[in-house]
């Protein structure tokens, strides 16, 4: 019986450690790697924090996409079609489904000047699919 009891104790302590680790993860997650999403009106109103990693999104304003001819810099404006819009700068290659009038998500930092420095730009993969964040903005 002693072996059995000991084994049970081991099992229980492993489970306990596992659970403790899981809770630890959760607390750490809450502090660090969460990227809160901000729609255009919150970016414009200043509710979105600057100089920290966030996500934002909106519809790409028609006629706003400007490419630099010398390098891979690109600027565009995201709007909610309700009067709030903000500028995004990005360096790199945009996804295939990035198009004017389409919904996109950007991940990066909001600068003090109100310009969003995007580290990545996400467009949807399917024309019928709208990211839940952008619901209600569609034209």
């Amino acid at each position: 019986m002693r072996v059995k009891r000991r084994n049970r104790l081991i099992t229980v302590s492993f489970v306990f450690i596992g659970a403790a680790v899981a809770v630890g993860l959760m607390l750490m997650a809450a502090n660090e790697n969460l990227n809160l999403f901000y729609p255009p009106d919150k970016v414009v109103s200043g509710e979105a924090p600057t100089s920290t990693g966030i996500r934002a999104g909106g519809m790409v304003l028609a006629g706003s996409v400007q490419r630099n001819s010398e390098n891979l810099d690109v600027r565009f404006v995201l709007t909610d079609y309700k009067g709030s819009d903000f500028e995004v700068v990005y360096t790199g290659i945009l996804p295939d489904l990035f198009r004017e009038g389409q919904g996109v998500l950007v991940q990066g930092q909001l600068g003090e000047d109100g310009v969003f420095q995007a580290a990545s730009v996400l467009a949807k993969h399917d024309e019928n699919y709208m990211p839940p964040e952008l619901e209600g903005m569609g034209a």
Binding site: L36, F37, R55, Q107, E133
Partner: peptide, 10 residues
Amino acid sequence: GDKISIGPPW
């Protein structure tokens, strides 16, 4: 209604 995502680093 606050929306977050957890990235690959996590």
